[in-house]
């Protein structure tokens, strides 16, 4: 029996595929807004959500998504206020999320092993119900991320201009925050809550090494995310380690490769394609070398007997096989 025939592996791979697509998709918008660490914060808050689920006996995926959305909304509201104290408020929220989660899981009588499957992902714990939830949420995230692409791009690129085009900027910002929260929950079983942010950011940073446009960065990042997730899950099965770790290590390795290749490509392009002002200018004559005829006592004139030859804007005189032209008080060799 190969690993692709194992039912839990099939589920893990499907969840991995969707996670690999949706995390970089939303991550592209977060990176563009320079909110790379937002996913990390939401992941911390979601730990409390998972713990609430375990404590109350309801599905951790559902409690996680509710708490994550509430947390993401709070983060977005604090950010939109733009107050200096907002930074501290976010830190309180993040650490409160982790500490509260660990405390509640202790109260629920669950050990570190259970918590670990949520923090770093787990191949064997994706139940069929989990899978339906993951598929539904991931598809929703992708539809929004692609369908509202132009609007979300404009808001992330230049928020003020987006407002003047009549976009509902606050609403779209909230959409991004909620999508990030949903993605965190989607990715929870595959990469885990502590590493989900890496899967949102690293593929985007990798893609950027090779791309110039927003759209190609988006597409390439999703491709990298899928490859990293699927390869990471297979490696995780073979090496018997948490999938979150293998996925992120693979993604980081991809970044190192792309950064090296990107540097080489840019260096070569820089060498091949000159800057505009380095291009040879066409039609501009070479500077005329200025050679003075040494010791030239004779003064040419139209009647001196030397043949006169038109040369552009002046006249040269043929003199012992040389061409001589008047220049100030002396004669030049032409």
């Amino acid at each position: 029996m190969t690993l692709f025939q194992l039912e839990f592996m099939q589920r893990a791979l499907i969840a991995g595929l969707l996670t690999g697509l949706s995390a970089p998709a939303i991550g592209t918008y977060l990176v563009q807004r320079r909110l790379s660490l937002m996913g990390d914060g939401i992941g911390h808050i979601a730990i409390t959500g998972v713990a609430l689920g375990l404590l109350t006996g309801s599905a951790p995926v559902l409690t996680a998504i509710i708490v994550a959305i509430a947390g993401a909304t709070a983060i977005e509201l604090v950010r939109a206020r733009g107050k200096a104290s907002g930074d501290v408020a976010l830190a309180l929220l993040f650490y409160g999320g982790i500490a509260g989660g660990v405390l509640l899981i202790g109260l629920a009588g669950q050990g570190a092993a259970t918590l670990n499957t949520y923090l770093f992902g787990s191949l064997t714990t994706v139940s069929p119900t989990d899978l339906y939830v993951v598929v539904g949420l991931a598809v929703a995230v992708l539809v929004v991320a692609v369908g509202l692409g132009p609007q979300l791009f404009a808001v992330c690129q230049d928020e003020e201009f987006a407002r003047v085009t009549g976009l509902r900027v606050q609403l779209l910002n909230l959409v991004i925050a909620v999508m990030a929260a949903v993605t965190v929950t989607v990715a929870m079983r595959t990469v885990g809550l502590l590493l989900v942010s890496a899967l949102m950011v690293v593929p985007v940073a990798t893609a950027q090494q090779l791309t110039r446009s927003f759209r190609s960065t988006f597409v390439v990042a999703c491709g990298i995310g899928v490859v990293a997730c699927l390869a990471g899950i297979v490696t995780s099965y073979n090496a018997d380690v948490a999938p979150g770790a293998t996925i992120v290590v693979l993604a980081l390795a991809g970044f190192v490769v792309a950064a090296t290749v990107g540097t080489l490509i840019r260096r070569r392009q820089g060498r091949v394609a000159p800057l505009a002002d380095e291009e040879p200018e066409i039609g501009v004559p070479e500077p005329v070398p200025h050679v003075v005829s040494a010791g030239h006592p004779h003064a040419h004139n139209p009647k001196c007997g030397h043949a006169a030859v038109e040369h552009g804007d002046h006249v040269d005189y043929v003199h012992d096989g040389h061409l001589h032209a008047a220049h100030g008080d002396h004669w030049d060799e032409h």
Partner: peptide, 13 residues
């Protein structure tokens, strides 16, 4: 105002 963290082309902007 504050160029984004992801490249964007002239056409996209």
């Amino acid at each position: 105002t504050a160029a984004g963290g992801v490249p964007a082309t002239v056409h996209e902007v």
